[in-house]
Write a protein that binds this DNA or RNA. Sequence first.
DNA 1: ATATAATACATCGCGTTACGATGTATACCA
DNA 2: TGGTATACATCGTAACGCGATGTATTATAT
Lengths: 106, 106
Amino acid sequence: MDIQLKRGLLDVCVLAAIRNEDSYGYKIIKDMKPYLELSESTLYTILKRLETANMLSVRTAEHDGRLRKYYHITGDGIKRIEDFKDDWKEIETIYRFVTKEEQEHA
Amino acid sequence: MDIQLKRGLLDVCVLAAIRNEDSYGYKIIKDMKPYLELSESTLYTILKRLETANMLSVRTAEHDGRLRKYYHITGDGIKRIEDFKDDWKEIETIYRFVTKEEQEHA
DNA sequence: ATATAATACATCGCGTTACGATGTATACCA
DNA sequence: TGGTATACATCGTAACGCGATGTATTATAT
């Protein structure tokens, strides 16, 4: 997948990965893998950005004797996904523009 | 539209704007406007990038006493659009992942 | 027992990119 | 005379993905 295209999907995809239940870094990467692969450095950058933007909240909890940071989606995070749905309509129009073949002249 | 999303569509949209007939800067912006708005500084950056990547070729011609640069799509440019079509299948899968609602438990 | 892989989080630096600001020059219209 | 549209171009800035690298614990294989 083209890297610029990927950029537009990453944030929203991470939010989708924690939408139904709180999750943590390593699990998010594994859950997203079938859809979009991303490195750890990329994910942690994104998580920090989304936290700063109040699209998710963080809670640290112990698991098997070591700490994990669990991420929880907020109202703003949900809204981010809804905004993406609005963008989607425009994207589909653009897709049709890009892929439409030249029509025959008569 | 989210700016990151736009980034993934701009190049391919510019190529689509010159696909059926050669065009020039100002006209490309106007033709793209219904789909994706972009500034002149952005467009000329993109045109230069696509030229460097051999996705289009340039020809200067006089029009009403002043010079215009006409852009023509190349085989590599066509291929770029075809690659986008392939990416589209992945994008649709991601869209479904992002927008699917949590199913009821029982 | 010991090495390797998996889990888990984090930072730094680099290259790519969109875009506002700005500049130059001509044509057209009020 | 001045404003608007046409037409192309460059510079600086900020955002972002990601490879490289680091730290630390747990599980698995040799």
